[in-house]
């Protein structure tokens, strides 16, 4: 069969003979090499973050500023998303429960869905877009405009000042935002229930929380910390390692969102498996 891809001849190190390899194969090998070197570099990056986190001169002021940037400035987005999530989930679930005559279970079912899964994952995905892209673009543009170099030559550790503060702020703020989204989601669910019924907020909440136990709440909170870390680490890694050209800023922001969203789903899968095994 005729080879459809162009081939080139290279000399084998093992045998010393010339062998034919398609350009496509070389391209794929390069992509694989890049992929694995990226994983290695990220591991080194995480090691540096851990090392700098426990260093003496922790940049506490910058950490608080980042908490404000990530936490406070994400509140409106998370509030709207959480509330709409609750309304939609309630409206969508109602017909199925009506068929079984189990409409009274609606608050409990929605509460468990929001607290265990939908609240943390949807919030993390939205924050991956908002925070991840922000970190990727900000650090990327700082790299391009030599601001990171300027920090380094003024004897300030940019890893400690820029990366550690952002990663820790994301790690602590994402769980808080998840709790906020959960609360707004439940409120949205109450609004959804009242579209076709008349239930007081107190009754709705007592029905909702009678179905929720601590084991529904705790694993979701723990995995939210990991979501925050993943978003922070990926966003900072992509921005900090951006190329020198201006287009690298866009590439860094874009790849930060794509990779952190993907990793949020992967972490969720692992968390669910672990929770399932333990509880």
């Amino acid at each position: 069969m005729k080879n459809l891809h162009p081939v080139i001849k290279i000399r084998s190190f093992a045998t010393g003979k010339s062998v034919k390899i398609s350009e496509k194969a070389i391209e794929k090998t390069q992509l694989a090499t890049e992929f694995f070197s990226d994983i290695g570099n990220m591991a080194i990056f995480i090691k540096q973050i851990v090392k700098e986190t426990f260093s003496r001169d922790f940049e506490f002021k910058e950490f608080l500023r980042q908490c404000y940037e990530i936490g406070n400035k994400s509140l409106p987005l998370i509030a709207i998303t959480g509330a709409i999530m609750g309304v939609v989930l309630t409206i969508q679930s109602r017909p199925a429960l009506e068929d079984f005559g189990a409409v009274t279970m609606l608050p409990g079912m929605v509460a468990i869905s929001i607290i265990r899964e939908i609240g943390p994952v949807i919030t993390a995905l939205i924050l991956a877009g908002k925070i991840g892209s922000g970190m990727g673009a900000e650090l990327g543009s700082m790299k391009v405009s030599e601001q990171i170099d300027a920090m380094e030559v003024s004897a300030t550790n940019p890893m400690r000042y820029l990366v550690v503060t952002r990663v820790l702020a994301a790690t602590f703020m994402v769980p808080i935002l998840v709790l906020f989204a959960d609360a707004l989601g439940l409120f949205g669910s109450w609004v959804g229930v009242n579209i076709k019924g008349d239930v007081s907020l107190v009754l709705f909440l007592s029905q909702a929380f009678s179905s929720v136990e601590f084991i529904d709440f705790f694993p979701a909170l723990v995995k939210s910390f990991f979501f925050g870390s993943v978003i922070g680490i990926v966003g900072c890694y992509k921005g900090y390692n951006a190329g020198r050209g201006t287009e690298s800023v866009g590439v860094a922001a874009n790849s930060a969102v794509v990779l952190s969203s993907l990793l949020v789903i992967v972490v969720d899968l692992i968390a669910v498996q672990i929770t399932d095994m333990i509880l």
Binding site: M142, E146, Q147, D149, A150, V153
Partner: peptide, 17 residues
């Protein structure tokens, strides 16, 4: 310690935005 004794003016200025 050595860098504390050296000033570096970057081509772009590199002011923190």
């Amino acid at each position: 310690e050595l860098r504390r004794k050296i000033g570096f003016l970057f081509q772009s200025g590199a002011l923190y935005d």
